[in-house]
């Protein structure tokens, strides 16, 4: 593991205020396998609950403890032998609990990783197996996933106990079509949103399991992925990305889009696209939205950051000498951007 501080990155200079994205540390996984994901998680290490970084390679998941001055030390590693790891699924307010998805192209298994308080012994258990289409970790140690095909489609909400040893399962009403992604609704903890293959946005009541509404958002944006929703003044503001979106000349390359929906009438209006600055191209590959910040890895290997309120692209992180960026996450506890490359490097930028 090496530590770096202060390397400047390219900032988008055409905005009124320049943002500050500064490299503060670098984690290097010595494993030769391909890196796939990164996140942050609360974990109790030597008796203290602290925010740790968790990284995933094809067959290992590692937990990194923060040392002084932005240095990190690997403290735990879970090993997998049969199915490769695809993604980390954080359960945001949980401690000593995190889920991971395993599979080849599609998710085949979801596993819970945890350690018991007494001996800090690492454990894992199978949470769900099958043909899993979409999954999201929620607050209050909950996980939602959709699985099965059209005829046996099922949406499950699981709640884990504090130690991770047991879980309660509730079934949410199925929209009877493939769900592409789930998103939490900020400010409304019992509401859950989903986008479907047939360009619908669906809303559930997590407490009752009811499917409240299915709303068509237009076929121009097929296969949209919902990242975050905000409820305000009776309206729902939804941030979407379009992995299959084509470049529209008048708008440049819209990577994210903000739409507003009236859930009562199912009518929606475009608010704004979040496009790349002129001279930059690429389509959405991976991304993360936290509060008013959206970050995306593009097919060009660049990371772009937008302020959702201001509408500007605020920073561009070009591929560095180690290679292209392949995944990006906001840290759960502070405004740090975690940017990863396939070779095992994870860079931490303060924003």
């Amino acid at each position: 593991q090496t530590k770096v501080r202060g390397d400047p990155v390219e900032i988008w200079h055409d905005s009124l205020e320049l943002s500050n994205l500064q490299l503060v540390s670098k984690l290097k996984n010595p494993s030769n396998s391909c890196s796939v994901d990164v996140s942050t998680v609360w974990w109790e290490v030597t008796g203290c609950k602290e925010s740790c970084i968790i990284t995933a390679c094809e067959f290992t998941v590692s937990l990194w403890k923060s040392l002084d001055d932005w240095q990190w030390r690997k403290v735990h590693t879970w090993h997998f032998t049969e199915i490769p790891v695809l993604q980390i699924i954080p359960l945001w307010d949980a401690c000593n609990l995190v889920c991971i998805a395993l599979g080849h192209l599609e998710i085949r298994e979801i596993r819970l990783l945890f350690s018991s308080g007494e001996d800090e012994c690492l454990k894992q258990s199978l949470v769900k197996s099958g043909n899993i289409k979409a999954v999201l970790g929620l607050r209050h140690k909950r996980l939602v996933c959709s699985n099965g095909t059209l005829h046996d489609h099922q949406v499950d909400l699981m709640t884990f106990s504090g130690s991770g040893r047991s879980k309660e399962k509730q079934t949410l009403m199925s929209p009877e079509e493939t769900i592409l992604a789930f998103a939490e609704v900020q400010g409304m903890q019992d509401a859950l949103l989903g986008t479907t293959l047939m360009s619908n946005i669906v809303i559930w009541n997590l407490k009752t399991g009811q499917l409240l509404k299915k709303m068509q958002i237009g076929t121009a944006y097929q296969a949209s992925i919902c990242h975050k929703a905000y409820s305000d003044m009776g309206l729902l503001f939804v941030v979407l990305s379009h992995p299959h979106g084509k470049e529209i000349e008048s708008m440049g390359s819209p990577i994210f889009r903000l739409i507003v929906i009236n859930p009562k009438t199912a009518l929606s209006v475009d608010v704004r696209p979040y496009s790349l600055p002129q001279g930059h191209t690429g389509r959405f590959l991976d991304g993360d939205v936290k509060d008013n910040l959206a970050a995306a890895v593009l097919t060009s290997g660049t990371i772009a950051v937008w302020d959702l309120f201001l509408g500007h692209c605020r920073a561009l992180l070009l591929p560095n000498s180690d290679g292209n960026w392949s995944f990006v996450k906001w840290s759960g506890t502070d405004s740090c951007l975690l940017a990863g490359q396939k070779n095992g490097s994870v860079f931490v930028y303060s924003y």
Binding site: Q210, M233, G234, L235, N262, L267, S268
Partner: peptide, 23 residues
Amino acid sequence: CSESDLGPISLNWFEELTSEAPP
């Protein structure tokens, strides 16, 4: 956005949709 674009807005949409939706 106005009501002409989005129709009548309800601040209690979540509770109202919950009471209208099939259990």
